[in-house]
């Protein structure tokens, strides 16, 4: 049964990489079921992430947000700050797709705090870039400029000419 769980996970990832997102969801749902049977919270957390990602490409952003929230909850329980940061970043982007910019900002700010704590300059730059765009969408140009300037500063430091 444990091997079956891993096989479902690998199958889900293969469907995903082939662009078969509906099949990926079916496999990852089976993986999730088996992870829960075993009380394997790391595998459960991975299944939530993979399901969230697949729902993004199916255009089902509300479902994606639900799975990313479960990922975030488990990342906090497992005290995995890197995964917590990644979940917040995913949620910020998902709420941008849902055009809920207030929530998008909330999650991008959470991502920014953790990226700083982990000295992740690339993550910090991405958070600032995302925040600049979200504040622009809300018409808050002062904050948009503030984050665009920080994004520029970090991009220069990283030598990211693009």
């Amino acid at each position: 049964r444990a091997a079956q769980g891993r096989a479902y996970g690998n199958l889900g990832n293969t469907h995903y990489l082939l662009g078969n997102f509906q099949n990926a969801v079916v496999s990852h749902e089976q993986r999730l079921l088996i992870a829960k049977e075993f009380g394997d919270r790391s595998a459960e957390r991975r299944a939530y992430s993979n399901l969230g990602n697949a729902f993004i490409f199916l255009g089902e952003f509300e479902m994606a947000a639900e799975y990313y929230k479960r990922t975030l909850q488990l990342a906090r329980q497992l005290k995995d700050r890197a995964v917590e940061a990644q979940s917040c970043y995913s949620l910020g982007n998902t709420y941008t797709l849902l055009q809920d910019f207030e929530k998008a900002i909330d999650y991008h700010l959470k991502h920014l705090v953790i990226a700083k704590e982990l000295s992740d300059r690339v993550g910090e730059g991405r958070a600032c870039w995302s925040l600049g765009n979200a504040y622009t969408a809300l018409g808050n140009h002062d904050q948009a400029v503030h984050f665009a300037e920080r994004h520029l500063e970090i991009s220069r430091e990283l030598g990211d000419r693009n």
Binding site: R6, G9, N10, N13, Y16, L17, A43, R46, A47, S49, N50, N53, I56, F57, Y89, S90, N93, T96, L97, Q99, R126, W129, S130, G132, N133, T136, A137
Partner: peptide, 26 residues
Amino acid sequence: FHRMNLMQVDSVQRWMDDLMVMTECE
């Protein structure tokens, strides 16, 4: 993204490009 200005979503587009090849492995 039809209702949004491209400038507002370039960061989302970049995230999705990365996401396309991102899987949590067993």
